[in-house]
């Protein structure tokens, strides 16, 4: 697939053209620059590509924080009405780590043994345009977990900065169509992206042996180290809500004036109610057992079942943890302590 070029000054026209065919979503500025969020756009106005990452990862467009599974009327409770279709969408400005997380979601939600029709529908109706990272943040560690600042996982088209233009790298047929109107890039342009990618990789020095750690974690369930690791944790759950790979959810009913809906909403393994039985018995009754479960899910259980780690190194859990827990330190401590 031929790499193409998009002049930055043409972004507005590019977005407007996309918006004729589909709903376009992009990181949108808010008063707090750190708090960009994916929102609908029709041109370049409001799009923020200066901020490294949106506070909420792009997962919210595929597994919304709260979504209606179906509606019902109380006088005929079993006659349920499924939710309607969504329009075709293009999401612009996705960072490679957040996109890579969708590939991990696919393993859970597009499992042939139990397909999730809501997730599948959103995935199939959405094209993803990524923007490569040339200047990773201080909490970024994608390279340590199999990612790359210029990574292409789950993307249809990757934009790589080469000054006043982007090199557009089509990765799928969908991506090729999105970039079809742009002129082809030259060899020098491609070389420039290689140079920038290498420079970005060099900025991320955290490189533990996580394959080896996954093996060590196999026998670490009863180790006393979990107490120490969990001591600062207040089980607030922010790491799970902001994590691009956390996908646990709750299902509840809401009803008012004879109409209601079954709602799926994000939930967190850090909350005690998450696993508590109706009898009162709780398999994970303490903060330590819950932090252990989250860590083992990401670095032992998921890789054991699916292969890759359930972490893309975006660093949100590090930046936003109110107790100052740094997942990189956790992984280093585990690597150093476990045999």
């Amino acid at each position: 697939m031929t790499p193409r070029l998009l002049a930055k000054k043409d972004l507005g026209r590019f977005i407007a053209a996309l918006a004729k065919e589909a709903e376009v979503w992009a990181p949108v500025k808010s008063t707090d620059r750190e708090n960009c969020r994916f929102g609908p756009v029709t041109g370049a106005e409001g799009i923020c590509l200066d901020c490294l990452q949106t506070r909420l990862p792009v997962k919210e467009l595929f597994l919304p924080q709260r979504e209606i599974l179906f509606r019902f009327k109380s006088d005929s409770p079993a006659r349920v009405k499924p939710v309607s279709d969504i329009p075709a969408r293009v999401v612009f400005g996705v960072r490679p780590c957040d996109a890579a997380a969708l590939e991990l979601f696919d393993r859970v939600f597009l499992d042939p043994a139990g397909d999730d029709p809501y997730y599948r529908h959103r995935r199939e109706r959405t094209a993803l345009i990524g923007v490569a990272c040339d200047d990773p943040g201080t909490a970024c560690f994608c390279t340590a977990v199999g990612g790359d600042p210029h990574g292409t996982a789950a993307l249809d088209l990757l934009l790589e900065d080469i000054g006043d233009r982007w090199l557009c790298r089509p990765l799928t047929e969908k991506g090729e169509r999105l970039a079809a109107a742009r002129g082809p890039a030259g060899k020098d342009d491609c070389a420039e992206t290689e140079r920038r990618a290498a420079a970005a990789r060099e900025q991320m020095t955290f490189a533990p042996d996580l394959a080896q750690l996954a093996e060590k974690l196999a026998g670490a369930f009863d180790h006393e180290i979990w107490e120490e690791l969990a001591r600062p944790c207040v089980n607030c759950g922010v790491c799970t809500y902001l994590c691009p790979t956390c996908h646990c959810f709750d299902v509840t009913d809401e009803e008012r004036h004879g109409r209601g809906a079954r709602i799926r909403a994000w939930d967190s393994c850090q909350f005690s109610l998450f696993t508590r039985h109706a009898s009162g018995h709780n398999p994970r009754p303490t903060g330590t057992t819950r932090l252990r479960n989250r860590t083992l899910h990401k670095f032992r259980y998921f890789p054991h079942t699916h292969g890759p780690l359930l972490c893309v190194g975006c660093g949100r859990c590090i930046i936003h943890c109110p107790a100052g827990i740094d997942l990189r330190e956790t992984l280093e401590t585990l690597t150093a302590t476990l045999r």
Binding site: V251, D267, C269, T275, A278, H297, Y301
Partner: peptide, 14 residues
């Protein structure tokens, strides 16, 4: 175990 989906997605019965 407590569960919400029954199909290995909601994440709590592991």
């Amino acid at each position: 175990n407590r569960m919400k989906c029954g199909i290995g997605k909601c994440g709590r019965c592991n």
